[in-house]
Amino acid sequence: MSLSKNEIKFYKSLQQKKFRDQEGLFVIEGVKLFQELLEAKTFEIDQILIVEESDLIDELKVEHGKYLNVISNKDLERISSFKNPNQVFVTVEQKKLKALDYTEDQTILFLDNVRDPGNLGTIIRTADWFGVTQIRCSESSVELYNPKVVQSSMGSIFRVDVTYGDLLSEVQAAKAENFSILAADMDGEDLTNFDFNSKTVLVMGSESHGVSDEISALSTAITIPKKGKAESLNVAMATGIILSAIK
């Protein structure tokens, strides 16, 4: 099929948050992310647009035929955010917000004002590596469905539940469920000497502002011991180091 001007305009509009929110959709691009989506089965597919030369078409017709639209390479280039798009462009339904589950012994990650999409995507991927299945972001943090977040998560977005809301009230709720609240801070206790609880909330703040004062007041501050002269660590890198110590 050939995409109409209105269809091209619609698919391109999903690169903007305003229209993603309006439609309740987001976009994934490329074969690898698409395969991760199909394997995880945690999001509902809206439409699959795939180039006519793809080897995946016959297989997709069996289970996903009602979503499938075969398009030209030229049309894919018109709607893609990539310079060199890879075969497939998929619109996916956004998930509805759900409450955090505090019933099990686990580590939950809270992100306070993390605004860089690459950092959020990498943090989601890192959380997935360490078996963290829940992340709560402050409402000031970057949007989950930003294309750079989706791509940099490398498919982990489909396996880790990421939600948004007021972090202060969530910290209070976690404390009521006997979770230890730890906040990363340059002046905190050396994490290599710390005795971690089996029920832990780790709060990571932005590199420029750190964790908010209100949340810090309810938290125990921990830090990564510094050996060299670097001023600070990237928040995604720091998250990985601390999760490694907790796990």
Rank of each mutant, 00 (worst) to 15 (best):
G121I: 03
I123T: 07
R125Q: 06
A127D: 06
A127T: 08
W129N: 11
F130C: 10
F130E: 09
G131Q: 15
G131Y: 14
V132R: 10
T133E: 14
Q134P: 08
R136E: 07
R136W: 07
C137F: 05
C137Y: 06
C137W: 06
E139P: 02
E139Q: 14
V142T: 15
Y145R: 13
N146F: 06
P147Y: 08
P147W: 08
S153A: 04
S153R: 00
M154Y: 00
G155L: 04
I157N: 01
F158T: 08
F158N: 07
F158L: 08
V160L: 07
V160Q: 06
D161F: 07
V162S: 04
V162N: 05
V162I: 14
T163H: 05
T163S: 13
Y164L: 07
D166F: 02
D166T: 04
L167D: 11
L167S: 12
S169D: 11
S169W: 00
S169M: 09
E170C: 01
E170Q: 14
Q172D: 10
A174Q: 01
K175E: 11
A176T: 04
E177M: 09
N178Y: 04
N178F: 04
N178K: 12
F179C: 09
F179K: 10
F179R: 10
F179E: 10
F179I: 10
